[in-house]
Amino acid sequence: MKNTIQQYKPFLLFLGKFALTYLLLTFLYQSYLGQFDVKKAETDGFTKIVASQTEFLLQLVDNNSYTMPHLKEPSVKLFYHGKYIARIIEGCNAVSVMILFVAFVVAFTGKLKNTILFILIGLFVIHLLNIFRIALLSIALYHYPNLEHLLHGVVFPLFIYGVVFFLWVIWVNKYSSYASTTPSK
Rank of each mutant, 00 (worst) to 15 (best):
T182V: 14
L12H: 13
P145E: 05
S180V: 08
F79I: 03
D44Y: 07
R133V: 00
Y161M: 02
D44F: 05
H152V: 02
E55T: 08
Q6N: 12
L71Y: 05
N63G: 14
K39N: 09
P10C: 10
H127L: 08
F166L: 14
Q6E: 15
I116K: 13
G82T: 12
I134M: 06
L151A: 00
K113R: 15
V50H: 01
K185V: 08
Q35E: 08
R133N: 00
D44T: 09
Y32W: 10
P10Q: 05
I88H: 05
G16R: 07
P183D: 14
T182I: 15
H152F: 02
V106H: 04
H149G: 12
N63D: 11
Y178N: 15
G110M: 01
H81P: 01
Q7I: 11
G122Q: 06
H70R: 09
F101P: 00
R133S: 00
L128M: 13
I119P: 05
F11I: 12
Y80D: 03
L147W: 04
K9C: 06
Y175D: 11
L112K: 09
S177D: 12
H143T: 00
I89G: 07
G16Y: 01
W171F: 04
Y178D: 14
K39F: 10
N146T: 08
F18A: 11
K185Y: 08
L117F: 13
I160T: 04
L136S: 06
P183M: 11
F118I: 04
Y32N: 10
F108R: 13
N63H: 10
L141I: 01
Y22C: 10
P183G: 15
I85S: 05
K113Y: 09
I99R: 07
T54H: 06
L120G: 14
K77S: 12
S65C: 12
L158I: 01
T4E: 05
V125C: 06
D37W: 05
L33I: 08
T115E: 14
L158S: 02
A94R: 04
I170H: 06
H152Y: 05
L15N: 02
V163Y: 05
P69A: 14
L60S: 10
M98H: 10
F46M: 07
S180R: 15
E42H: 11
P157F: 08
I139C: 00
D37H: 12
T4V: 11
L158Y: 07
H70D: 05
V155T: 04
V97M: 02
S96Q: 15
I116T: 14
Y175V: 13
V102F: 05
I121F: 15
Y175S: 13
V155C: 12
V154Y: 02
P10T: 07
Y66Q: 15
N173W: 11
P74I: 04
T21Q: 11
H70Q: 09
K83S: 12
C92R: 03
S52H: 13
F156R: 00
I134Y: 08
L28S: 10
E73C: 05
F27H: 04
Q53A: 03
M68S: 15
P145T: 00
M98P: 03
